[in-house]
């Protein structure tokens, strides 16, 4: 039971890393970015690639985060910026196009065979969290990193000047610009942070999951569910919803028959939206 709870929380934390970037961009810039999963894939592939050529997991961490952040900025400045004022269907189409291009480009660069990404020996084993209950070390690390990032994000958005600009830019862009906030630059930076979070999630998923073409899409769907349940644009909502989805999914798979088990998070979403149509913690009234 303790083990399954840890599994659920760990899955939830992973989803939070994905969903926080998605919800920030969606809620604050009003932009639906389906290519978020491709950034996650980019993080995993960069990390695996750097690790395979350098032999160092430590070197792979900053490489993956910086590269996905840079990719995020390139996309934001080069393409997505032109789509903020367009309707959601246009945004979905352009970002879905990016997903297809990213998948085939990744196959052309890295080949069709999934990449290998072993853990350093220090993290590869398991530790005994309670007598007779071993738990994989790396999953505990994922848990810790995810919680730390969640805390950090909350402090930045709610307690710093930068966070204030972000919130100002989202609630009324013209006024914020008139007050001297460089909204374009803030949004580019925000997009970079969102991308870096996806890259971090991809990098941490690499040793647990298969580093392969198309790995971003299944996790993107779950992240969208989390975003919608939590309330679009709310970091707090994303955190609560991610943990909820992680736990419900884990226990659903253990306690319910298989067909129902894989459906249960979508039932949860339907139920919550029936009573709270804007999600648990709506940002915009």
């Amino acid at each position: 039971m303790i083990e399954q709870t840890l599994n659920g929380v760990q899955l939830g934390v992973m989803l939070f890393l994905m969903a926080s970037g998605l919800t920030l961009v969606f809620g604050i810039m009003n932009f639906i970015n389906l290519a978020h999963g491709s950034l996650y894939m980019a993080g995993a592939f960069t990390a695996a690639w750097i690790q395979n050529i350098s032999g160092s997991f430590l070197l792979a961490i900053p490489a993956a985060i910086l590269l996905t952040a840079a990719l995020g900025v390139v996309f934001e400045v080069g393409l997505f910026r032109r789509f903020y004022a367009r309707n959601h269907l246009d945004q979905v189409l352009v970002t879905f196009g990016i997903v297809l291009v990213a998948n085939e480009a990744t196959r052309m660069i890295f080949g069709p065979v999934p990449l290998r990404m072993p853990l350093p020996p220090l993290l590869a084993g398991s530790v005994e969290i309670l007598p007779g209950l071993p738990y994989p070390t790396f999953r505990l690390v994922v848990l810790g990193v995810g919680l730390a990032v969640a805390g950090l994000l909350w402090v930045i958005v709610m307690r710093t000047r930068i966070g204030m600009w972000v919130r100002a830019g989202s609630s009324n862009r013209p006024i914020a610009a008139a007050m001297g906030v460089d909204v374009d630059r803030v949004f580019a930076a925000l997009f970079a942070v969102g991308a870096a979070l996806a890259g971090l999630a991809g990098l941490m998923a690499g040793p647990i999951l298969a580093v392969q073409v198309g790995m971003g899409e299944p996790i993107l769907i779950l992240a969208l569910v989390v975003t919608v349940i939590g309330g679009i644009g709310s970091i707090k909502g994303a955190f609560v919803a991610a943990l909820m989805v992680g736990l419900v999914d884990t226990f659903g798979r253990v306690l319910l028959p298989p067909a129902l088990g894989s459906m249960v998070i979508f039932l949860l979403m339907a139920l919550i939206l029936a009573f709270r149509p804007k999600g648990l913690f709506p940002v915009h009234g």
């Binding site: 083990e3 599994n7 899955l11 298969a210």
Partner: peptide
């Protein structure tokens, strides 16, 4: 993607062996 819940159940059931069929990425 994640099999931690199933793996925890295997640990609790203590079978002599596991037969699995997971082709492709699921197997990884």
């Amino acid at each position: 993607l994640d099999y931690s819940a199933e793996i925890a159940q295997i640990r609790a059931a203590k079978p002599s062996a596991v037969f699995f069929f997971y082709p492709g990425g699921m197997g990884i």
